[in-house]
Design a protein around this nucleic acid. Structure first.
Lengths: 135, 135
DNA sequence: GCTTACGTTTACGTTAACGTAAGCCTTTGC
DNA sequence: GCAAAGGCTTACGTTAACGTAAACGTAAGC
């Protein structure tokens, strides 16, 4: 089910391979295909996932960790492949990249502020603990 | 509706004040109250929001930008107030803070990798544009 | 030859986070 | 005195992202 030479990268994956590796259900993987985020090959009925499919899945899950919708993750993934023929499409692509970057910078700022607030909360909690333990 | 002295911070806000300021609907604000994230005072039936309520709302919206659920945002907000009496609760609080921090660090890594991928995508798009515009 | 494991499709169910009225007060400007 | 502006509750509708289950096919091991 997972043809590999000795210790290198597998050539293909079954759906349960990927579900195990990433801790998601096969239903979820098929759902992503349904939404146009994956398009694995088929051997008869059975889905065969390539290393590229696996990378796409990783990108989707990373997007989820950042709070992206599946539509957003699909857009981001589509930014990678150079299927943007004409000038107008390329400029819209650049526009989309700029917007995503701005969004990510906002997230960075949000994380920074939350981080320092967590620091303060931890400070207070440790102080309260010290007071409660050794009065 | 928004009592203030001259140019300083308002003392209270109406629900539409906040909805306008943050670009959300009043329905959304009431929904957050329903979920236990806000608890404004009442003048009769009417909700009166304090500056602290407004800060809470800002925290909720920041959480949304980071992909948090409302439950997660509520937990984070609860980490701020020092209503954690005994030792066990304080230790669970410290535990929760540590977990959030780990999650945020993961998000930081995710943003870094996505950022550099966007850089590469922009590079390729600019190169393709140069080829298409001045061949 | 039969169970077990893995795969498939189809379809209905569920949860979060609101949207969208409807119907009803109260206050304010003219 | 009345219309417009804002506020309220109640309730049904909607979308995204899967969960859950049924019903079936197939290949492997004993």
């Amino acid at each position: 089910m997972k043809p590999e030479s000795s210790h290198a990268e597998p050539v293909s994956y079954s759906i349960s391979d990927l579900s195990r590796e990433f801790g998601i259900t096969t239903r979820t993987i098929r759902f992503y295909e349904d939404k146009g985020l994956l398009a694995p090959e088929r051997r008869g009925q059975t889905r065969i996932y390539s290393p590229e499919d696996r990378v796409r899945l990783k990108l989707i899950l990373r997007g989820k960790r950042l709070g992206f919708s599946l539509d957003e993750s699909r857009e981001i993934i589509e930014m990678y492949d150079p299927a943007h023929g004409n000038v107008e499409q390329l400029q819209r692509l650049l526009q989309g990249i700029a917007e995503k970057r701005a969004q990510l910078q906002q997230q960075l700022r949000d994380i920074q502020s939350l981080m320092s607030e967590l620091d303060e909360a931890e400070e207070r909690a440790r102080a309260a603990l010290a007071r409660n333990i050794s009065p």
